[in-house]
Design a protein around this nucleic acid. Structure first.
Lengths: 118, 118
DNA sequence: GGTTATTTGTTCGTATGTATG
DNA sequence: GCATACATACGAACAAATAAC
């Protein structure tokens, strides 16, 4: 399948953790080496992902201390942005397939029931 | 954004055309040169995409004639498979964000209304 | 206070994959 | 099919900040 470069996936995962509250402004992220070991990738790939997030003003690096979520990170808007992006991607896919909106919605509901516990 | 390599995007687009009936088994695909000109990419990139589809038994190349959709291409199941994949991806994203199912569904409905003509 | 050792980020070079001509 | 340029991923060595002794 391949959902893009590894370093972008790592960066996205950090944003998702922020969005759902597993990570908060001021929190320290795992060191590049530790996270690389956990994910079984090269430390430099994690560094690349962190650099991308730093460039986007989401995190900041402190030499010798670690990497931290910036205190002014726009957490509240993150969840809505990411969810909206996911919706747009899905609807785009459905239309590329020529699937009517009603059928696309039905497919979502079916998918919910398929993995629901209620 | 970047949704992966160009040659994979081209291959995916062909599968989508098959799924929605714009392309049928036996149909001839545009020549690599023509499609490359249309997409403003290198002809070799299109050749690469076609080779990928040929390797996956979706199309076949006929020397001197062009590239054709294989007569035994599994068209009927393609649409459902691709739609199901899109649903799975979206629901996965929503859960990664910690978004409740009800809210995910609401976001889809909202997205539909936002770009609806009815 | 100074030295060492650990933890951390930083930078270099190399190999593979992608896109181009 | 080949040669070139760029992006990605990998590996090893480097420099800065910290804590312990």
């Amino acid at each position: 399948m391949s959902a893009g470069p590894i370093f972008e996936q790592i960066a996205k995962n950090v944003r998702q953790q922020l969005a759902r509250g597993d990570l908060a402004p001021g929190d320290r992220l795992p060191s590049a080496r530790d996270l690389a070991a956990t994910l079984s990738v090269n430390p430099n790939t994690v560094v690349h992902a962190y650099s991308l997030l730093e460039q986007q003003d989401v995190i900041e690096k402190r030499r010798g201390l670690g990497t931290f979520v910036r205190p002014d990170a726009p957490v509240p808007t993150l969840k809505n942005e990411l969810l909206h992006a996911a919706v747009t991607t899905f609807l785009g896919e459905a239309r590329q397939l020529g699937v009517p909106d009603s059928q696309a919605l039905a497919a979502i509901e079916e998918g919910l029931n398929a993995s629901d516990s209620s």
